[in-house]
Amino acid sequence: MAEAERPERIYLGPHDLLAGRTLLPITVGGHQLLLVQDGERIVAAERACPHEGADLGLGRCVGGRLHCPRHLASFDLCDGSVSPGWSFCALRLFEIESASDGLWLRT
């Protein structure tokens, strides 16, 4: 799809989509993502760890960081940066917009 044809945002579902869960794997536009509830904030992240592809949906979220279940590296949910001691690329994050009609992924 050409850049000009991409929507600015994609509807994900109602406000209670996570229904009390911290992590929710989703597929959007053929991409495997992970919705992460961190307090009142919801962020979308790529689901595969950039290190070796571990499923971050099996990890946990604590104190604004998403922890990989395989290597115990963690990612800052503000900018995707990896914890000290690791030297691989940051986790790709996507903004979630909470609108009157539900949750939207900003593209």
Rank of each mutant, 00 (worst) to 15 (best):
A54V: 06
L66P: 09
A73E: 06
R92M: 05
F75E: 08
L66W: 09
G13R: 00
H71S: 11
A19W: 08
D55V: 01
V28Q: 07
G64N: 11
F75H: 06
P69I: 10
S100F: 05
G63L: 08
P14L: 13
L35M: 04
I10Q: 05
R21Y: 00
L18R: 06
C61L: 05
R41N: 14
A2D: 15
D79T: 14
A2H: 15
L72I: 06
G20C: 00
T27Q: 13
C89Q: 15
I10Y: 08
A45N: 03
G53D: 06
G85E: 12
R41I: 11
L18Y: 03
L35W: 00
G29F: 03
L66M: 11
D16V: 03
R9I: 00
P50M: 07
G102I: 03
A54T: 07
A2S: 14
A4L: 06
L17E: 02
V82M: 12
R41A: 15
D76A: 15
L105Q: 00
C49I: 10
H67A: 07
L56M: 09
E3A: 03
L105C: 01
S81E: 15
E97V: 06
S87M: 13
L77R: 06
E95D: 08
T22N: 07
R21E: 02
L66D: 09
E46N: 11
S83K: 10
S74I: 11
V36Q: 02
F75G: 11
A99R: 04
S100K: 10
T107F: 01
W104L: 08
D79L: 13
W104N: 08
A90Y: 03
Q32N: 14
I42Y: 01
A4Y: 07
Q37W: 05
G29H: 01
I42S: 02
R9H: 00
S74F: 14
E97K: 08
P50Y: 04
F75D: 10
E40P: 01
G102Y: 01
A45S: 14
E8Q: 12
I42K: 06
L93F: 11
I42R: 02
L66F: 03
H31I: 12
I96V: 04
A44F: 12
L17V: 05
D55A: 02
T107H: 03
L58Q: 11
Y11S: 02
G30D: 08
C78F: 12
G102A: 01
I96H: 00
W86R: 05
S87D: 15
R41C: 09
V82G: 13
P25S: 05
E5F: 03
G53M: 09
